[in-house]
Lab assay of single mutants.
Amino acid sequence: MQFKLIINGKTLKGEITLEAVDAAEAEKKFKQYANDNGIDGEWTYDDATKTFTVTE
């Protein structure tokens, strides 16, 4: 399945997509990506659109 991450950071904004088996795997990958890029914020997930959002 394809999942999307919307980044609303203080210095980094944008979207990325990835393939994952389920939402838990996608969340783990997205949070690792955010951590690697210094993004720390409030996370939400919309199951209907398979979209994660992180807002700093």
Rank of each mutant, 00 (worst) to 15 (best):
M1P: 10
Q2C: 04
Q2I: 04
Q2D: 03
Q2V: 08
Q2T: 13
Q2K: 11
F3A: 00
F3S: 00
F3P: 00
K4M: 07
K4W: 06
K4T: 11
K4Y: 07
K4P: 00
K4R: 06
K4V: 13
L5N: 00
L5A: 07
L5V: 02
L5M: 14
L5T: 01
L5I: 01
I6Y: 08
I6T: 02
I6P: 00
I6F: 15
I6S: 03
I6G: 07
I6V: 12
I6K: 09
I6W: 08
I7N: 02
I7T: 05
I7D: 01
I7Y: 15
I7S: 06
I7V: 08
I7R: 01
I7C: 02
N8G: 02
N8F: 15
N8M: 09
N8L: 07
N8T: 11
N8A: 06
G9L: 14
G9M: 11
G9E: 03
G9A: 13
G9I: 13
G9W: 15
G9V: 08
K10C: 02
K10V: 15
K10F: 06
K10Y: 15
K10I: 11
K10N: 12
K10P: 12
K10T: 11
K10M: 13
T11G: 07
T11S: 09
T11R: 03
T11K: 09
T11E: 08
L12A: 06
L12G: 06
L12K: 05
L12N: 06
L12D: 11
K13N: 15
K13Y: 06
K13W: 08
K13Q: 12
K13D: 10
K13G: 14
G14R: 14
G14T: 13
G14Y: 13
G14L: 14
G14K: 12
G14E: 12
G14P: 15
E15W: 03
E15N: 04
E15M: 04
E15G: 03
E15I: 02
I16M: 14
I16T: 04
I16D: 08
I16S: 08
I16H: 15
T17F: 06
T17N: 12
T17W: 06
T17Q: 12
T17D: 09
T17M: 06
T17Y: 10
L18K: 12
L18D: 06
L18S: 08
L18R: 11
L18F: 07
L18T: 10
E19Q: 10
E19Y: 14
E19M: 09
E19A: 13
E19H: 15
E19W: 09
E19I: 06
E19L: 09
A20Y: 05
A20Q: 06
A20W: 04
A20D: 10
A20T: 07
V21T: 10
V21K: 13
V21E: 13
V21P: 14
V21W: 04
D22F: 07
D22P: 01
A23H: 03
A23K: 15
A23D: 09
A23M: 12
A23N: 02
A23T: 12
A23Y: 14
A23L: 05
A23G: 05
A24L: 07
A24N: 11
A24V: 15
A24R: 11
A24H: 07
A24T: 12
A24D: 10
A24F: 11
E25M: 13
E25S: 08
E25V: 07
E25F: 12
E25H: 15
E25T: 05
E25A: 11
A26Q: 00
A26H: 00
A26R: 00
A26V: 03
A26E: 00
E27W: 07
E27V: 03
E27S: 10
E27P: 00
E27M: 15
E27I: 06
E27F: 04
E27Y: 09
E27K: 05
E27H: 11
E27C: 04
K28Q: 13
K28E: 09
K28D: 08
K28I: 15
K28F: 11
K28S: 12
K29T: 11
K29M: 08
K29Q: 10
K29V: 10
K29F: 15
F30R: 00
F30I: 02
F30S: 13
F30E: 00
F30A: 12
F30Q: 00
K31T: 06
K31I: 09
K31H: 08
K31Y: 13
K31F: 09
K31P: 00
Q32C: 04
Q32R: 05
Q32G: 08
Q32E: 12
Q32N: 14
Q32F: 13
Y33V: 15
Y33F: 05
Y33D: 02
Y33R: 03
Y33E: 10
Y33G: 03
A34Y: 02
A34L: 03
A34G: 14
A34N: 07
A34C: 04
A34R: 01
A34P: 01
A34M: 02
N35F: 11
N35P: 01
N35G: 15
N35L: 13
N35Q: 11
N35D: 10
N35R: 08
N35S: 11
D36S: 08
D36K: 09
D36E: 03
D36T: 08
D36C: 05
N37D: 07
N37E: 09
N37R: 07
N37V: 08
N37G: 10
N37F: 05
G38C: 05
G38N: 12
G38M: 14
G38Y: 06
G38P: 02
G38I: 05
G38H: 07
G38L: 07
I39V: 14
I39N: 02
I39H: 14
I39G: 02
I39D: 01
I39E: 02
I39T: 05
I39A: 03
D40S: 14
D40C: 03
D40G: 11
D40Q: 12
D40W: 11
D40V: 13
G41M: 02
G41S: 01
G41D: 01
G41Q: 01
G41T: 01
G41N: 01
E42W: 08
E42G: 04
E42I: 05
E42V: 05
E42C: 05
E42K: 12
W43V: 01
W43F: 03
W43L: 05
W43R: 00
W43D: 00
W43T: 01
W43C: 01
T44P: 00
T44I: 05
T44F: 10
T44Q: 12
T44E: 15
T44G: 04
T44S: 14
T44M: 06
T44L: 05
Y45C: 02
Y45G: 01
Y45R: 05
Y45P: 00
Y45S: 03
Y45N: 01
Y45A: 02
D46G: 06
D46W: 11
D46R: 13
D46F: 13
D46H: 06
D46L: 09
D46I: 13
D46P: 00
D47C: 03
D47E: 15
D47A: 10
D47F: 03
D47P: 15
D47M: 12
D47L: 10
D47T: 14
A48T: 15
A48P: 10
A48V: 08
A48N: 15
T49M: 15
T49P: 09
T49K: 06
T49N: 12
T49C: 05
T49W: 12
T49I: 12
T49F: 09
T49H: 11
K50D: 10
K50A: 08
K50S: 15
K50R: 09
T51C: 04
T51Y: 13
T51A: 03
T51K: 04
T51N: 06
T51D: 03
F52N: 00
F52P: 00
F52I: 02
F52M: 04
F52Q: 00
F52E: 00
F52R: 00
T53I: 08
T53Q: 07
T53A: 10
T53L: 12
V54H: 02
V54I: 12
V54T: 13
V54F: 06
V54R: 00
T55P: 01
T55W: 04
T55L: 04
T55Y: 04
T55Q: 04
E56P: 02
E56Y: 04
E56W: 05
E56M: 11
E56I: 04
E56G: 02
